[in-house]
């Protein structure tokens, strides 16, 4: 547009660079550096040693935490995808546009409301003497131990991720060209064949992105495994909190954090690659 130098574009471009540099990249870079530092007399001293890495990598409890977190987050992503799909399918194909808009409207609300208080509510609901067991008791069932088990943690993960997964799936299903589906029917495809050969492949990107978000959120979550899952064995995030809060061992917590970020990004890249790959 203009050839002479103008300050105008930079006023809009630069604030983000400064802010993210100072308060996003800076802290993360410090954390990486910190993982090579040493703690002496309860104070961190800059250094470049691999002691923290050796310490964490050689401990059984670290790998227990690593695998249980990976396993639970994968299970949560799979469950959320399966539980959400019938609902998303209904919202995408069986209801009017207005109903769908309102449904999405109400699904956004819980995502931005206190997850902590919702987890506490589940703690009350799932307790041995809580309302759910009381109702099951009238039916002659239970009581079941749900709190402080893997089930409790999974209920918490679903509370956290289901609304988002349903929204993402609904959008991707609603965006499918209806002619494609009708064509499949006209050509005599069964409902099952239409679902698996037309609808699911067309909505692949949205389905995978939904699962990836479910994975990311569950993987990093600390509330559900701690308050609903009983924190035994600890997950990676519980390990970070324990290491930071009790032992002042920030460098070792940084090691756990870096392992988490590497794992998350690997999973996300592989999954997004699968979503967009082979799609000509």
């Amino acid at each position: 547009m203009k050839t002479r130098f103008s300050v105008y574009p930079y006023v809009w471009r630069v604030p983000l660079l400064i802010w993210q540099g100072l308060f996003f990249i800076g802290p993360l870079a410090l954390m990486v550096a910190m993982s090579f530092w040493l703690v002496k007399n309860y104070r961190m001293e800059p250094d470049f040693v691999f002691k923290n890495w050796d310490k964490m990598m050689s401990r059984g409890y670290f790998w227990d935490a690593y695998w249980i977190t990976l396993w639970r987050a994968s299970l949560a992503a799979l469950l959320a995808t399966l539980i959400a799909f019938p609902a998303s399918y209904t919202l995408a194909f069986k209801v009017s546009d207005t109903v769908r808009r309102w449904a999405v409207f109400f699904l956004i609300v819980p995502f931005f409301t206190s997850y902590l208080v919702r987890a506490y509510a589940w703690q009350v609901l799932l307790a041995e003497s809580g309302p759910i067991n009381a109702i099951l008791g009238y039916l002659g069932l239970g009581p079941f131990t749900m709190l402080n088990t893997g089930i409790g943690a999974m209920v918490g993960y679903m509370t956290l991720v289901l609304p988002l997964v349903v929204i993402l799936q609904t959008f991707s299903l609603a965006a499918i060209d209806r002619n494609l589906i009708e064509a499949a029917w006209n050509l005599g495809a069964s409902a099952r064949a239409t679902l698996f050969k037309v609808i699911i492949p067309s909505a692949r990107v949205g389905l995978i992105i939904g699962a990836v978000f479910a994975f990311i959120l569950s993987y990093g979550d600390f509330v559900s495994p701690f308050y609903l899952g009983g924190s035994k064995p600890p997950t990676m995030s519980i390990l970070i909190i324990d290491t930071t809060k009790s032992g002042q061992q920030w460098p070792r917590a940084a090691v756990v954090a870096i392992m988490m970020i590497v794992t998350l990004f690997t999973v996300a890249f592989v999954a997004v690659g699968a979503a967009y790959g082979r799609r000509k």
Binding site: L28, M31, I216, Y219, F222, I240, I241
Partner: peptide, 8 residues
């Protein structure tokens, strides 16, 4: 993850 942001 928020825990990591917290630590950093």
């Amino acid at each position: 993850p928020l825990v990591i942001m917290g630590l950093a």
